[in-house]
Computed example of a mutant assay.
Amino acid sequence: MIRTFAAALVAGTTVAHDPAVGTNHLPPRSIPTGRVALDDQQVAAWPEPAPGQLTPTVPFSMCWSPIVRCNLTCPQCLDDKGVRESTPAERQELAGHIARSGVLGVDLSGGEPLLLRDLPDLARAIRDAGTMAVSCTTNGWHLARRAPELVGAVDAVRVSLDGATEHTHDTWRGPDSYRRAIAGIRAAVDEGLRVQLQMVLMRANRHEAQDLLHRAAQLGAGGVTFLQMLPIGDGAALADQQMLTDDQARDLVADLTVPTGIRVRLRTRDSADGFTVLRADGYAWRNTGGATAITALIPITGPDDLRSPAA
Rank of each mutant, 00 (worst) to 15 (best):
229 M>V: 06
228 Q>C: 13
283 Y>T: 06
182 I>E: 09
291 A>G: 05
193 L>N: 03
260 T>D: 15
301 T>E: 13
223 G>T: 00
292 T>H: 09
240 D>G: 15
216 A>T: 00
210 Q>P: 07
207 H>I: 07
282 G>P: 01
224 V>G: 00
236 A>W: 07
202 M>C: 05
230 L>I: 12
274 G>R: 07
220 G>A: 09
189 V>P: 06
266 L>T: 03
256 L>P: 01
194 R>A: 13
281 D>C: 02
204 A>D: 10
176 D>P: 04
262 I>A: 07
180 R>W: 04
214 H>C: 12
188 A>T: 06
194 R>I: 12
190 D>M: 09
237 A>F: 10
224 V>I: 10
185 I>T: 03
284 A>V: 02
271 S>L: 14
232 I>S: 00
262 I>M: 10
196 Q>A: 04
246 D>I: 00
263 R>L: 14
259 P>A: 07
282 G>R: 03
223 G>A: 04
238 L>M: 09
241 Q>V: 13
220 G>C: 06
242 Q>Y: 11
254 A>L: 05
274 G>K: 03
215 R>Q: 13
205 N>G: 02
295 T>G: 04
180 R>S: 08
244 L>Y: 09
282 G>K: 02
184 G>W: 05
266 L>C: 04
247 D>A: 14
230 L>E: 12
276 T>V: 12
296 A>T: 12
281 D>W: 05
293 A>F: 07
262 I>V: 08
221 A>L: 06
280 A>H: 02
247 D>Q: 15
178 Y>S: 01
179 R>I: 13
294 I>E: 11
244 L>V: 09
214 H>E: 13
269 R>C: 05
256 L>R: 08
305 D>M: 02
194 R>L: 15
285 W>V: 14
301 T>V: 14
241 Q>H: 11
305 D>T: 02
203 R>H: 11
224 V>P: 05
261 G>S: 01
223 G>F: 00
284 A>W: 04
307 R>W: 00
229 M>H: 03
278 L>P: 01
241 Q>I: 08
209 A>L: 05
259 P>G: 05
223 G>C: 01
231 P>A: 10
228 Q>S: 15
195 V>P: 02
234 D>G: 14
279 R>N: 11
302 G>K: 02
208 E>P: 06
272 A>F: 11
262 I>F: 02
290 G>N: 09
246 D>F: 08
225 T>A: 14
278 L>T: 01
243 M>H: 10
183 A>N: 07
213 L>C: 08
275 F>Y: 13
295 T>A: 13
222 G>L: 09
306 L>F: 03
250 R>M: 06
223 G>I: 00
271 S>A: 13
281 D>E: 04
230 L>K: 06
200 V>S: 01
180 R>G: 03
269 R>E: 03
